Amino acid sequence: MLQYTIRRFISIIPVMFIVSVIVFLIVHLTPGNPAYLILGEDSSPEAVAQLEEQMGLNKPMALQFVDWIKNIFVGDLGESIYSSEPVTDVIMDRIGPTFSLMITSLTIALFIAIPIAIFVVWRRNTFLDPLFTSFSLVGTSIPEFWFALLLVLGLGVAVPIFPVAGYVPIAEGFIDWIYHLILPAFVLAAVEIGLIARMLRDGMLESVNQDYTKTARAKGVRESIVLMKHVFSNALIPTTTVIGVTVAGLLGGTVIIETMFTIPGIGQLLIDSIYRRDYPVIQGVVLFIAVVYVIVNLLIDLLYAFLDPRIRYD
């Protein structure tokens, strides 16, 4: 297990290098000059050239990339062009709202998807099967921004139950914190509920008529125990994979949802930085998202060995 973990961590290096190259090229090949945005369109060419020299934007692109990569290896993502703060500090200031939104969304998705999947398997071969399939397809097909607009209009404007904007840190009170997160978190969770529930239900249906489940029933074990002890546990491997993908999807979904609900997280920071042509922050945020995605996938792979003792990474 230790050797496998070390190898996986080493394999992250080339992946992140490729990601950094793609991110750097996309950002720097996008039209727009940060110097003009900072000084204004009426600024003189001399002033723009001087600011570009201060920010290092007058260097050849290859040299800018080399400097950026060297700084990454020492933990320096550069400074924000907009605020002159270290990019690492800017990202760390925004992690709290984003992770709060992700954790709340994942919790809602699991608390709804798992009981639904188990209940549908328990009542299999009834009208619930086609009903569940229809609802899960609808859930995975709903565009997040459209669903968010419906909830805002319905539960935030027409019937003002939940706030439609803003964020309250958990340090200022758990009730206010969760109250401001419920609406955006449910929007993110809605798409993932159908995916997780369907994967868990399909995995359980594959195990429900296996020989070991028939043996358990023949011994007089109740159906509920058979479902939870034998069927559910064997369906966790593919479901865990989907949950890992879901975490990455939630992180990407925060870009839209945080902007719509004005939550000061990583997603809104990325959108604001794109408008400002703040190259260092854009590169740092995208690289941070890629690191989280790779680490989550590594943790999911390691979790397989704990869920199924037959899996070994020797």
Rank of each mutant, 00 (worst) to 15 (best):
Y4M: 05
I6D: 10
F9K: 01
S11N: 14
I13Y: 15
F17Y: 09
V19D: 01
I26W: 13
V27T: 15
L37K: 10
L39A: 05
S44K: 10
A49E: 08
N58S: 14
P60G: 00
M61Y: 14
A62D: 12
L63P: 02
I69G: 06
K70Y: 14
L77A: 06
S83I: 07
S84M: 14
T88I: 13
V90N: 02
P97H: 13
T98Y: 14
S100W: 10
M102T: 06
A117K: 02
F119D: 01
W122V: 08
R123L: 03
N125L: 07
T126R: 08
P130T: 00
P130N: 02
S134Y: 07
F135H: 02
L137Y: 15
V138I: 15
V138S: 10
F147P: 08
L151N: 15
V152L: 13
I161H: 03
I161S: 04
I161M: 12
I161F: 08
P163V: 09
Y167C: 06
E172F: 13
G173H: 15
F174M: 06
W177A: 00
I178K: 01
Y179C: 02
H180Q: 09
L181R: 02
A185E: 13
I193V: 03
L195M: 11
D202N: 03
G203D: 01
M204V: 00
N209T: 01
T213W: 09
R217M: 12
V221N: 06
E223G: 02
E223L: 10
K229Q: 12
H230E: 08
V231A: 14
L251P: 03
G252V: 04
G253S: 04
G253Y: 05
I257N: 08
G265L: 14
G265N: 13
L270A: 09
S273H: 12
I282P: 09
I289V: 06
A290Q: 05
A290S: 12
I300T: 01
L302V: 01
L303W: 07
Y304E: 02
F306D: 03
L307E: 01
I311N: 02
